[in-house]
Design a protein around this nucleic acid. Structure first.
Lengths: 201, 201
DNA sequence: TGAGGCACTGTATTTTTGAACAGTTTTCGC
DNA sequence: GCGAAAACTGTTCAAAAATACAGTGCCTCA
């Protein structure tokens, strides 16, 4: 939806987003012009048309500031991940949650629904939404989302040379040890926070 | 700031908030008129003036939809609560967090910063932000924020007749038992969710 | 009881915006 | 080096929006 934009169109879209964020309303054509130094309102107009044609924005005709940003997208909630497909593939997105990614730091890229109790002692329970920042690498001690043999798992990351250990936080579970010379280990991201909706009764 | 508004002014302000929420931009005078059935744009105009005079909104003159809502306040984060003062007293509010209260259900009224590990086995750790819905009563099994002898504590609520037990979720801690005929027990709210910002390293 | 604030009607005028029409320059794939 | 899309300039005009001015009815409070 957002991907096939030209560089300039992306800049314009970012400006619209920023304006909505900081001023609480979309910009006018004229405001786009001053922001980018255009001398003709039609420069803005045609960019908006292009963005609307690509579905990046919606234009309501005849209304002042009639630019709509297609819905508050929010963070995707990723459920069970099928083997061999990327974690953010559409079929894994259960729903979306309207949350500011910058609530966490570094920013969260998605929320992973946690299955099982293997991280219980780290206060990560079954059903929790783990806020994950996409990152290809991790430091020792960080809680990571990793993919091992096409299984997505949440564990604490440690490493000794080529030997990576993924540690559970629950004595009922066994660590996963991987020799990275033989088996590939894909870090999908690092945990940056957690959201629990509702409390177990 | 928000309190000394007339009934009608409050309605108008709520409408403005709703419009920003659903449409992503503030309403025009004309839109206020149609929403309330006014026949004169000046009805809207004077209400906006009144709201601006009371600081409930900011008006930018000469701009279409030039209504600004003074910043999204968000949920208060309550830190340590001093003895004898209400939990939402200003001096307890560490800061505020821009989160939709309706993320949780029932809605969260504030976020309580958790101190200590007495609820560890319920996945509630030191430093977590507990989303709390204000409620004067609780059902057995719910995790509550309670005030006992001027101490604010988070525990699981149980009751047998006049005997209320507040159970920790950690064997290192002792339950608190209260005879409600003798000691008063104030339920400040029930836990409806949890947010953890950052992960222990 | 009458002065003042609130909540409106009604009309008019100016700005701000959106949007159409007609062109020019640049970039880039082919 | 041709042609098309992208990225603009410049001008114009009508609709949308802000805003001023002149009133009316109702309620409250002194």
């Amino acid at each position: 939806m957002d991907s096939n934009l030209t560089g300039r169109q992306r800049e314009i879209l970012d400006f619209i987003r920023a304006t909505v964020e900081t001023e609480g309303r979309p910009p006018t054509r004229a405001e786009v012009c001053t922001a980018f130094g255009f001398r003709s309102p039609n420069a803005a107009e045609s960019h908006l048309r292009a963005l609307a044609a690509k579905g990046a924005i919606l234009l309501e005709e005849g209304r002042a500031r009639g630019i709509r940003l297609p819905d508050g997208i929010g963070l995707p909630i990723v459920g069970r991940v099928a083997a061999g497909s990327p974690i953010l593939a559409v079929e894994h997105v259960e729903s979306r949650q309207q949350i500011d990614p910058a609530l966490f730091s570094p920013k969260a890229d998605y929320l992973l629904r946690v299955h099982g109790m293997s991280m219980r002692d780290a206060g990560i329970l079954d059903g929790d939404l783990l806020a994950v920042h996409r990152a290809p690498e991790a430091r020792v001690g960080q809680i990571v989302v990793a993919r091992v043999e096409d299984e997505v798992t949440v564990k604490t990351f440690t490493r000794k040379g080529n030997l990576v250990s993924l540690l559970p936080a629950n004595p009922d579970f066994e660590p996963i040890v991987i020799d990275t010379r033989r088996e590939p280990l894909v870090i999908e991201g690092i945990a940056v926070g957690l959201i629990r909706k509702g409390m177990p009764v």
